[in-house]
């Protein structure tokens, strides 16, 4: 049997995490290719329903990346995101969606290595729990 390769959607903020991911690439740090990155201007821009929607539409996990607290380009976006995602994550866990599927991280533009490590960890974790089936759209008509 083929090994399960999860699809992970990464919502990364333009100023830190995305730049961090870029740095990981330009520094030629190897990390799993399972994360599909969507660049957003700020982690505060992420509507928590994005997470649910991603899981519905085929993602096995969602990774949200923002600037370290205090570093937000818009001064407070990541703080707001932290609150929102904290609540959403707990709600999803309560409904019975594995906590490993929704992750959040602070990655600065200089932390290419950290980004790679986070992706590795997230991918490993999701590999262990297998594909997301609970709320995925079936698209069978």
């Amino acid at each position: 049997m083929e090994e399960f390769e999860p699809n992970i959607i990464g919502f990364l903020c333009n100023w830190c995490s995305y730049a961090g991911a870029d740095l990981a690439g330009t520094s030629r740090i190897q990390y799993p290719p399972n994360v599909k990155i969507i660049k957003v201007m700020c982690s505060g821009r992420i509507n928590p329903m994005y997470v649910v929607n991603a899981l519905q539409q085929g993602a096995d996990g969602v990774l949200i990346g923002g600037c370290h607290p205090g570093d937000c380009h818009y001064s407070r976006g990541n703080y707001l995101a932290r609150r929102r995602i904290a609540v959403m994550k707990r709600l999803l866990e309560y409904i019975g969606i594995e906590p490993e599927r929704v992750r959040m991280t602070w990655v600065s533009a200089a932390e290419g290595r950290k980004f790679a490590e986070v992706v590795e960890e997230v991918t490993e974790d999701i590999k262990k729990i297998g594909p997301m089936k609970k709320i995925r759209r079936e698209n069978v008509w």
């Binding site: 932290r82 992750r103 991280t105 602070w106 960890e121």
Partner: peptide, 9 residues
């Protein structure tokens, strides 16, 4: 600023 962030990687 000190909201819980134990879930953040």
């Amino acid at each position: 600023p000190d909201d819980p962030e134990d879930f953040i990687l």
